[in-house]
Computed example of a mutant assay.
Amino acid sequence: MSSKRHLRWAAVPVGAATAVALAGCTPQEQHGFLPGFTEDGQPATNHTDMVGALWVNSWIVLLIVGVITWGLMLWAGIAYRRRKGQTGLPVQMRYNMPIEIFYTIVPLILVAGFFTFTARDQEALETQYEDPDVSIIATGKQWAWDFEYLGTEADGSDSVWTMGVQVEADENGNRVESELPTLVLPVNKTVKLQLESRDVIHSFWIIDFLYKKDMYIGHENYWSFTPTREGSYAGKCAELCGEYHSMMLFNVEVVSEAEYEEYLASLEALGQTGPIQDEYDRLQNPPGVGAPAAKEEETH
């Protein structure tokens, strides 16, 4: 039997084994072990699948290029190694136009391809909803978050809000994350976040949503998306913003529409209505000293 026929027969089990291995991948493995997907593959937002696909497909292309490159290097190292009895330098080959054209065109195609798909997905991610179901102002400050849920009035009189403090530590030095600022979102409703900063540059990052955006003082940034799965998610500042940057955390709760409306009503019942005022520009409560409200109670 010829060597070519041997190769053909060898390719059959190799191909079958590869197909079986790929079919057995879990949703997490199929999405490159990225967060934001459950065991059944359900994404956290309407954009999560797209970001995951860009990540995975980019790595597949890079792996193919890497395998070809490593194979050529190995082949050249074996085929052109110095044999016993050989002396001097081997015959040098220069100005091989076909090879030089190949090495120029292929990288250009790769770069153009990566740019095209990245620009396409970025355009979708950066397209803002004109009439979202929910509009929220998320404000970063050293070192916590405020969330203002906008109503329909232009002056913000029917808005409700929560003010957060950065994570505190218990007596054992462990972070008490249950007291973190919480952003509540309704599932399957269009959301538009207006991102602002009160002091320095921050970065708003919900990890499972696979996207983050910077926040600048004096400049408004926006992010539109639709949460597609109820659950709890972790958020944090992704831009070094000062001494307690690592404690600038927040929680995200994606709930049903009824639970969302109930939450807004609870904030209204607490009197947390209208726009957040300028006197709350700075947090002024380093870790270990408690929230501003607690300090005011102690002084009375």
Rank of each mutant, 00 (worst) to 15 (best):
G140L: 01
A23V: 06
S3F: 10
T127Y: 05
R82P: 01
L62Y: 07
Q86R: 08
M50P: 02
R83N: 12
E100N: 14
E39W: 01
G66H: 02
T116I: 03
A119N: 14
H31D: 03
E123G: 15
L72R: 13
S58H: 03
W145P: 00
F114E: 04
I68Q: 07
E123H: 15
A138G: 12
T26Q: 07
L62V: 12
F147P: 02
A144Q: 04
T69M: 04
N57Y: 11
L54R: 02
W9D: 09
T38Y: 09
I64Q: 10
M97K: 10
F117S: 04
L89R: 13
S58R: 05
Q42E: 11
I64W: 11
P107N: 10
T38Q: 07
V106M: 06
P98D: 10
T26I: 08
K141N: 09
Q30Y: 08
Q122M: 13
P13D: 05
S3P: 01
I137F: 09
G71Y: 02
E100M: 14
M93F: 15
P98L: 12
I78L: 07
Y103D: 10
A119V: 15
G88P: 03
F147K: 01
P43Y: 04
A16E: 10
V61H: 01
V12N: 08
Q122D: 14
R82T: 08
Q142K: 05
T69P: 00
Y103T: 03
A79T: 14
A124V: 15
I99A: 12
S2Y: 03
V61Q: 02
L7F: 13
A19P: 02
R81A: 05
A21R: 13
T104F: 03
Q30P: 01
P90I: 06
F37N: 00
L54I: 06
F102C: 01
P107D: 10
I68D: 07
I78F: 03
H6E: 09
V51Q: 06
V134W: 00
P35G: 05
A138T: 07
I109R: 03
V106K: 01
I136K: 03
T48S: 14
A124N: 12
I101K: 04
D146A: 07
P98H: 12
R82W: 01
A11D: 02
V65E: 01
W9H: 11
V61K: 02
V91I: 14
E29Q: 15
P43F: 03
L22Q: 04
W59I: 07
V106E: 02
D146P: 02
T48H: 10
G71K: 00
F147I: 07
Q142R: 07
A10N: 10
E130M: 12
